[in-house]
Design a protein around this nucleic acid. Structure first.
Lengths: 213, 213
DNA sequence: CGACCTATTGAAAGCTATCAACTGGGGTGG
DNA sequence: CCACCCCAGTTGATAGCTTTCAATAGGTCG
């Protein structure tokens, strides 16, 4: 049941007027798998708008969400000409796709990807620290702070991920994630208006839990 | 007690005859910290020869080794003009250093780093799967296979890491790593000539444990 | 209003961490 | 050259946290 382009949007590939035909921009609905781990890696993709989740599977079905992407982030990477991860939209998203050969032809694109890869690599380093060394409560605190950068103080964060998806991202089970949310709520660090609407109440304590940032 | 360049080698910076003075090659002894998490990020480094370990610390001292690097790999990355990780040699190593500004000036370097970043990002994705979803035994099996690529069949692998360093890489404790080694030995999957000399006896079972490669 | 899916909560089991003792190998110094 | 010391590794016992299994609550959509 692979839907590469979701039928709900009707939209598949929509090359905007006057742009490079090798770089089609596509509009994709939420919860669509854009590409599959193990498929031949022909294209590199950039998130223009929306959120995308990269995940890997173990043969027995265990899943790890390895990266959460937002505008500017790049995916569709490969070792041996095969995609290393599956990519699924969390929200409706706009995605730019480039042929891999464009990397040699287009130095501007290459420079942009270089900077972005560096940033994503740094984020992965942080994530390794989270997965390898943090407790469940710390992981969830870190996750919420990561989704709620400084700017939006007082605002309410809308989670576009289920508990299972958060668990797969944080290396936990959905029950443990739920318990962590409840514990943060009990301690007064967050308020849950709904299961998917979070307000950070005590940012200082959250940061301490998450180990700074 | 920071030794940027180890005195045992005597060598500090050794610009080979006729090469770019902005890209000094340095020879560093084993167990030297080449750069520190949080220091101003001025340079980007390439491993020419040897092995380098990147690690991050939590405020309370918990450590995660986030990446193991070999020839060709790149480090010295930064978010906000500060190094995101510390880097320490595991063996004597040769390292090329570039000024960060060289990225804009030197398209050949930029292209090389782009390819390398992509590879390292893929490795980090695998590592997230290991840290988030694998048992202790599976992690150690994965670790050994990763260090023993197809080629060196029958050969003996020399571990240049202590149990503590392996544990910090795999998100475990040194005792758990030791127990995992003992269990692999007991099951006949590996032979330990010494604590730091491993021979993989049953590669098939190892791969199954590690979830394919 | 009811069905269904997601989230929450509870109880018990399992795996890893922690604390502790012991072993072994290598290097140093007598 | 040998003995001792010291550090890394191994092994054991127990505690703690997360997982697993199970039941309940909540919300959304038809």
């Amino acid at each position: 049941m692979r839907q590469i382009i979701d039928e709900r949007t009707g939209g598949t590939v929509r090359p905007p007027h006057g742009t490079d035909p090798h770089c089609p921009t596509m509009r994709v609905a939420a919860h669509v798998t854009v590409l599959h781990e193990g498929d031949p890696a022909r294209r590199i993709m950039e998130v223009v708008d929306g959120a995308v989740m990269l995940s890997k599977l173990l043969p027995d079905g265990r899943r790890q969400v390895v990266e959460l992407l937002g505008p500017g982030d790049v995916f569709g990477l490969a070792h041996s000409d095969l995609y290393a991860c599956s990519a699924e939209t969390l929200t409706p998203a706009t995605i730019n796709t480039h042929d891999r050969s464009a990397l040699e032809r287009d130095p501007v694109l290459a420079a942009r990807l270089l900077r972005r890869f560096e940033a994503q690599l740094c984020v992965m380093h942080s994530h390794a620290l989270v997965l390898g060394r943090m407790s469940a409560l710390e992981r969830v605190a870190f996750f919420l702070l990561r989704l709620m950068p400084e700017g939006m103080v007082g605002g309410t964060l809308h989670l576009s991920m289920t508990r299972q998806e958060i668990a797969d991202f944080l290396g936990l089970t959905l029950e443990t994630v739920s318990r962590a949310f409840s514990e943060l709520k009990r301690r007064g660090l967050v308020v849950l208006q709904r299961a998917d609407e979070v307000r950070i109440q005590d940012r200082g304590s959250m940061r301490r839990l998450a180990g700074a940032l």
